[in-house]
Design a protein around this nucleic acid. Structure first.
Length: 242
DNA sequence: TATAATGTTTGAAC
DNA sequence: AGTTCAAACATTAT
């Protein structure tokens, strides 16, 4: 379910609870969530696929991984991992990873690495890519320390749009193309956000899960690529291999 | 019904 | 000691 843009949507949906007190806590998490009882939410933040709830002196990090879901002001049949009840509603998380982050949340995250953050720094991403010339671009795009928030869908769509073969080596891709990839990672992430909100994300997929190249009509290749072995959809005719 | 899928962490093996 | 890789986790649509 979640790549960066989906978590941004989550954050927007829970704004109603900012500044509100946690009246009751429950859930099958074993990390000691009862600690949240009676505390007031200072703010909600996101860092890529991480959803962060900030309290005075510490924060809680929620990662939905592959199967995680959430419900606002409603419940699923299954047991929540974490359920927070406020005076104006409730927030429930299912099958997710939850961890505490002590002290200042800023000491845990490099905000310049999040493609959807206002502090996103493309130059910094470029520098990080220069340090991994032997990596395939399909792996590099999924590297959360470089492109926090980018997931497999965004990876495939970005590479298709900039016409780069996913197995291209970072160090061999021309510099202007690298800049284009970095730029498109941001552009597509925000398009993903808007399309997801309109419930028409899949409608705009050009490569991901597709079988025929939108440009030339030849069959798209579907293959597990890179050390991460995530599926890539690409056109060997339209996407250059460097 | 079996399979695959928008993901990350862990710990064994080298 | 550092890197690499498969296993584990867990849900749902096709």
């Amino acid at each position: 379910m979640p790549e960066g843009p989906s978590i941004v949507i989550l954050k927007e949906e829970v704004l109603q609870f900012e500044g509100h007190e946690v009246i009751s806590v429950s859930g099958n998490s074993i990390i000691g969530i009862e600690r949240l009882q009676g505390l007031t939410v200072l703010s909600f933040k996101t860092w890529g696929k991480n959803f962060i709830i900030c309290f005075n002196g510490f924060s809680i990090k929620i990662h939905l991984l592959l199967f995680g879901t959430y419900r606002i002001n409603e419940r699923k049949e299954t047991q929540p991992r974490l359920s927070l009840v406020f005076d104006n509603g409730e927030l429930n998380f299912y099958t997710c990873s939850i961890k505490f982050l002590e002290c200042d949340v800023n000491s845990h995250y490099d905000w310049t690495a999040d493609v959807m953050n206002e502090d996103w720094n493309p130059k910094s991403a470029k520098n990080k890519l220069e340090k991994i010339p032997d990596a395939m671009i399909c792996d590099a795009l999924l590297e959360q320390d470089v492109f926090s928030g980018v997931g497999n869908i965004i990876k495939n769509e970005v590479l298709y749009r900039v016409k780069i073969h996913p197995e291209s080596l970072v160090g061999k891709i021309p510099k202007p193309k690298i800049s284009e990839i970095i730029k498109e990672a941001v552009t597509y992430s925000f398009q993903f956000l808007e399309w997801k909100k309109q419930n028409e994300l899949k409608k705009h997929w050009l490569a991901h899960s597709k079988t025929i190249c939108f440009r030339c009509g030849l069959p798209l290749i579907k293959k597990q690529t890179g050390v991460k072995k995530r599926r890539s959809f690409f056109c060997t005719n339209c996407q250059n291999l460097y």
